[in-house]
Design a protein around this nucleic acid. Structure first.
Length: 147
RNA sequence: GGAGCGACCCGGGCGGUCGCGGCGUCCCUCGCGGGCGCCGAGGAAAGUCCGGGCUCCAUCGGGCAGGACGGUGGGUAACGCCCACCGGGCGCAAGCCCAGGGAAAGUGCAACAGAGAGUAGACCGCCGACCGGCGGGCGGCUUGCCGCCCGGUCCGGGGCAAGGGUGAAAGGGUGGGGUAAGAGCCCACCGCGCCGACGGUGACGUCGGUGGCACGGUAAACCCCGUCCGGAGAAAGUCCACAUAGGGGAGGAACUCGGCCGACGGGCCGGGUGCGAGGCGGCCCGUCUCGUCACAACUCCCGGGUAGGGCGUUCGAGGCGGCCGGCAACGGUCGUCCCAGAGAAAUGACCGUCACGGGGGCGCGAGCCUCCGGACAGGAUCCGGCUUACGGGUCGCUCCACAC
RNA sequence: GCCCCCAUCGUCUAGUCAGGUCCAGGACACCAGCCUUUCAAGCUGGGUACACGGGUUCGAAUCCCGUUGGGGGUA
C-alpha cells in the first residue's frame, strides 16, 4: 500500500489551520466565481478562482455532485480536497475565492495524489485571471437553467 | 467432521502529529483571532414502505366518495409492527412459510384442449332387464298369423357414467353389497354439512348423533361484512429585516326591520333573510369570514421582487442498571446519566503499535518471521417499526457419517 | 430534505384500468434478397423488447410486495 510521506507537512510550518472564515458560504459568492472567474485543471482537480478586492488569505468552496458516488464517497472526496487546500493555503495567492471540484473519482485516492493537483490548479487559474481579467458567464444551452 | 435451523451480541482497541463542528469559559494586538474544558454518526444513520409526536389549515362536526387493514387473544401512543396461541401448507427433523373474514347477497372471469367448464355432459366405451324390428328354433291352429325360447362376435329406441380420453380444474374418496350394466341406490370407514354435549376468554379442539352429498375455483376481479383514517408536510410553520410597486386580468348581488342625526335629497350604526365570493384535500350538509347599487375595498388568477437572520431545534413514548408482575411481547417501580444539533452542512489526514482473519517460509513443538486484508455505509424535524445492503462472533437445537 | 410520477425492440410508441386470443402489434432504423450499370426509391422476407427478484392465480407485460434506474414538483 502506498503511504503519504509526513515530511511534506513537516516542511510547512507555521500553523496550518483552516478556520471557518476561510469558507465561501454565500450562494451569491459561489455564483460570482463560476460566472466571472477563471478555471484550470491539473491532474484530478479542477479549480475556479475569482479575485476579491482585498489581500486576505484565499477562501474555498467545494462542489462534489452525485456523480461522484454515495454520501460516504462524496464525503471522502470533499475531505481530501479540503485537507489539500488546508496544507497548501499559505503558499496560495491571497485575495482569491477558490472553488475546487474533482475531475475523476477520488474515493480510493490518497492525499499525495490530490495535493499537488490542488496547488498547481489554483496557481494556474490565478495566473490566468490576472492575465485575462474576469470572464463572462458561459451560456448554458439546453439543460438546467439557474435563476 | 459434514449439512442445516433458531436466538442473541459486536461492528476493532491504545497512542502520537496536524486539523474540523457545537456549547461553556477566559485572554487580547478585537479579527474571518487564540487558550482551556466537555460533547461530536449507524445497526442499518439508507430505501422513504407503514404508524405516531409536532406545526399550520378558525373548529375538525356529520354523511357520501376514497384509501388501508383482515384467524384468535394480548402488547403498544399507534401501526400494515411485536408476542403467545389456533388452523392450513412444506420439511426425515430442528424448524420455516401463510393478504389466514365472506364464494348458500349479487355480478363477472376461466384462453387452448375437450362430448361436457357450472342450471353439467355422452366422443370412445359399458348394458341388452324394458319397447319395436330382424334372424333362428319349437309349439299351436282358423295356413299366415299368434305364443314361447335363443341371439348384442344383429339393428334401433333406450339405460349408465364404472373405465378410457381432454384439461389447471370434470359435481366427494376407498372398499363391499347391489344391478342388465351402473350410480350414496344401500352399507362401513374417511371427508363434508347440520345439531348437541364437554373443554377453552377465544380462534378452535374432542366426543356423540344426524343428513345422504346438497355447497367446484377465483375477492393481491368488482363486491359484501367488520375495524381504522380530515388535509398537508419542517423547503411544515412563525417572527423580524430587506426588497418590488402600489402592475395586469376576471368576478358578482337586494329587500326589509330597529335606533340615531338631519329636516326631506338623504347619511351613519346594528340586525334578519336572500344573493355573491372565499376557507374547511373532492362532493353534499353544516359552519365561519368578507362583501352587498359597487371610484374604492374585497375575492380569485397572472406577472414581478426577496433567497438574509431569530425561533421551531433537540430532555425524549430517552439510555443504562437493579427489583417486582407476566410463558412472552411488555408493564410497574427505584436508582443513575445528559448523549451531535449543523444550516451547503463538522468526525478527517498521516503514522506507530496491539489484537483478529488469510497466504507463504522456518521449527519436532509452544511459537517465530514476512506479506496482505477489515464489509455495508454518514445525522439534516424527532420517535416506534418494516424492508433492503453487509463483515464477524457466541450459545442452543436437528439430521447424517465415524470413533469410543 | 420532503412529496409525487415513470420504466415494453436500436429509437418513438400500442397493449396495462376490466389477466388468456401477445413466444407482444405499428412506425422509423438495421440485415438479406429482387429490381437498377451503380446509388436512392420501391417490392419481398427476416432479426430484435415487457428493468430485476419474489408472491397471488391453472395462467402475469397486465394484479400485489420489494429492489434498481430515470424524471418532476416544493423555501
Amino acid at each position: 500500500m502506498r503511504r503519504y510521506d509526513p515530511r511534506v507537512s513537516e516542511e510547512l510550518r507555521p500553523r496550518l489551520t483552516l478556520p471557518a472564515g476561510s469558507r465561501v458560504r454565500r450562494h451569491a459568492d459561489v455564483r460570482r466565481v463560476f460566472d466571472h472567474g477563471r478555471s484550470a485543471a491539473v491532474g484530478p482537480v479542477v479549480a475556479y478562482v475569482f479575485a476579491r478586492d482585498d489581500d486576505a488569505p484565499p477562501r474555498y468552496a467545494l462542489v462534489v455532485g452525485k456523480r461522484w458516488g454515495n454520501a460516504v464517497q462524496r464525503n471522502r472526496t470533499r475531505r481530501l480536497l479540503r485537507e489539500s487546500f488546508r496544507l497548501t493555503r499559505p503558499e496560495l495567492p491571497r485575495g482569491f475565492d477558490v472553488i475546487l471540484l474533482p475531475r475523476e473519482p477520488l474515493f480510493t485516492a490518497l492525499l499525495g495524489d490530490v495535493l499537488p493537483g490542488v496547488r498547481q490548479a489554483v496557481h494556474a487559474a490565478a495566473r490566468r485571471f490576472r492575465r485575462d481579467g474576469p470572464g463572462q458567464p458561459r451560456a448554458r444551452e439546453g439543460g438546467r437553467r439557474r435563476r
